[in-house]
Design a protein around this nucleic acid. Sequence first.
DNA 1: AACAAGTGTAGAATTGCTTCTACAATTAAT
DNA 2: ATTAATTGTAGAAGCAATTCTACACTTGTT
Lengths: 212, 212
Amino acid sequence: MKPANNYTFLIADDHSIVRQGISLLIKELFFNAKIYQAGNFKDTLSIIKETKIDLLVLDINFPDGNSLSIIPETKAIQPEVKILIFSAYDEDIYALRYLNAGASGYLNKGSSEDEMKNALRSIILSGKYITQNIKDRILDSYISKKPINPLEQLSNREIEVARLLIKGYGNMEIAETLNVKKTTVSTFKNRIFEKLEINNLADLIDFFNLYS
Amino acid sequence: MKPANNYTFLIADDHSIVRQGISLLIKELFFNAKIYQAGNFKDTLSIIKETKIDLLVLDINFPDGNSLSIIPETKAIQPEVKILIFSAYDEDIYALRYLNAGASGYLNKGSSEDEMKNALRSIILSGKYITQNIKDRILDSYISKKPINPLEQLSNREIEVARLLIKGYGNMEIAETLNVKKTTVSTFKNRIFEKLEINNLADLIDFFNLYS
DNA sequence: AACAAGTGTAGAATTGCTTCTACAATTAAT
DNA sequence: ATTAATTGTAGAAGCAATTCTACACTTGTT
């Protein structure tokens, strides 16, 4: 049985400054924590394969692995690992999706250090961290099921495609990235445009600037 | 005359974790540095107004002030302040513009801690930090005499086409609007993309948001 | 005045994208 | 429990966009 505050962390983020900041906070909370770092998704998986990790702090904006599927992929290797998503994207649109996919918490990069500390402590000690805001949204969506943010209408896969589109990816690149056929991408693009009642990329970009 | 390592810093970034990380690095380099922090552009200006700052580490991705103009605005208040841009955007596209606007250095968020330290030290001690890559580009732009605002490179017709493109018009619509053939539009689109060194509409939209 | 570079235009061939249709697997609704 | 809608996927055919090439006309350079 290991000592009460002897936990193992893995910080996965492509910005070393960010890793440094998080690392510092963890050390403040758990003074003899063991902290690993990874700058991309590939390294993240390597470490997960070799080492028992208590909490993975995961940026979801990696160039090499940017979808919801990274959560099941990670848990497939080490099912007990807790995952705290640490994202620059708007909580309102993404948090629920990631929690549903198996994350233990979702934190926006704009959060204060105190919130980060709460999240770390909360997940380590009680297994999850859910902000009041997210709780409210869960309730809302349970009761009314009316999306306030038009982007919430999009399915997970549609959001993935939309994000790649606004990055400037062409259909073929997206098809390769997601391992589907390019006609499939076209179909998704159509559905996205229909749902948002738009018909070109410029408007899609507008939408994302406005709502996320 | 103040002691040699008694400098004053202001870290402006909307992510507190990032501020924390940078703060730590500064303290390692300048052990009795005075460090201020701001989470948005408004607060940044407030602090600049009240306090003499030696070096401002500035994220250019603020929700409330995201354009080149933040540099002249800052320098208008405190002309001697040095500014290190710390951006998630690609150096190749943005660094020169910010340096031209009056920044003393440009650092990508993906940079290592060592690079960050070099940049901090270099600006404090010698007034500027310019990577070899950026030096090369300055030389290039000096030789080829390309204008500061890349959009100025575009001919009138090219600007017309570009404007329609960022409105979301397709090649055919543009062809009809301008009474030319659609292949002509394609040719223009190509020339625009070549001149701006981009290859998709999303980047074009970025360009216009930044430079107009 | 001569030459180079940039501008506005377009065709043929190729490549990329959309539309329409379809279907199995979920998920929601009655 | 049954029906309806949504989601993830894709093929065939058609339409749109790109590439490469070309050429006359303007502007800039020496």
